[in-house]
């Protein structure tokens, strides 16, 4: 069974009397352990697609199976828990909470994991231990107690990646992860994604930049709300 299965996903936004169809029937399957990039120019609907993939937005019609679960049939609170368990987000604007340290930012998703899952996933290591390990691996060992404002862009994004990994989710979902980074940091971040992929993680990167997309194993091109390749 595929990890992610989208069937004929349509999304229509209403702007006054005007209906704008952003996604015009998308079919997409992502297997476990794949590294996929979704590429398209701005306005192509790729961000909307990524929010739907991340269970943050609901399509107007279509079907979405995540690990066999019919996401669109679940109530909002269960979908929220699905996000905590299955998806690790990495955003273009990092979204680090300014009053929490690097370590606490990484620990934040643990507090939203259901108790039973928390016990299961942190049976061997405490969340703190795991956070320190992840941050060490990402080269932030010396920055554990820094505030986000004291970090460079690359460091911020690496913190965000650690946060995305803390709950051991099935999928890493990155939305323009290099959009605010210089080319050196961009390379670094993509290298991390490749490493995660080689360790068996499923990684989906959404970008408008073909150079970035090329790092992936499979490229899905989107134009005008349709998958073109």
């Amino acid at each position: 069974m595929a990890l992610i299965e989208l069937k004929n996903i349509r999304k229509v936004y209403r702007q006054g009397d005007l209906e704008v169809e952003i996604l015009k029937g998308i079919d997409l399957t992502v297997e476990r352990g794949e590294f996929v990039s979704i590429v398209g120019p701005s306005g192509s609907g790729k961000s909307t697609l990524m929010y739907i993939l991340g269970c943050l937005d609901r399509p107007t019609s279509g079907e979405y199976y995540l690990d066999g679960k019919n996401v669109l049939k679940l109530p909002d609170n269960e979908v929220s828990k699905l996000r905590a368990e299955y998806i690790g987000f990495v955003f273009q604007a990092f979204y680090l909470i300014p009053y929490l340290t690097v370590l606490d930012n990484v620990l934040l998703p643990v507090s939203y994991l259901p108790k039973s899952e928390r016990k299961k996933r942190f049976a061997d290591k405490s969340p703190q231990q795991k956070a320190v390990e992840l941050l060490t691996r990402l080269g932030l060992r010396e920055r554990l107690h820094f505030k986000p404002e004291e970090l460079s862009g690359g460091q911020k994004q690496r913190t965000a990646i650690a946060r995305a990994l803390i709950n051991s989710p099935e999928v890493i979902l990155a939305d323009e992860p290099t959009g605010q980074l210089d080319s050196e940091s961009s390379c670094e971040v993509m290298k991390i994604f490749k490493e995660l992929h080689s360790e068996g993680k499923t990684v989906i990167v959404v970008t408008h930049d073909m150079e970035i997309a090329k790092h992936a194993q499979r490229i899905v091109k989107i134009r005008d709300g349709r998958v073109v390749e």
Partner: peptide, 16 residues
């Protein structure tokens, strides 16, 4: 607002 959106993305329910 973005912080609330982030917490929702990380798995917070409306109740939380």
């Amino acid at each position: 607002q973005w912080e609330i959106g982030l917490r929702r993305a990380l798995g917070a329910t409306k109740r939380e």
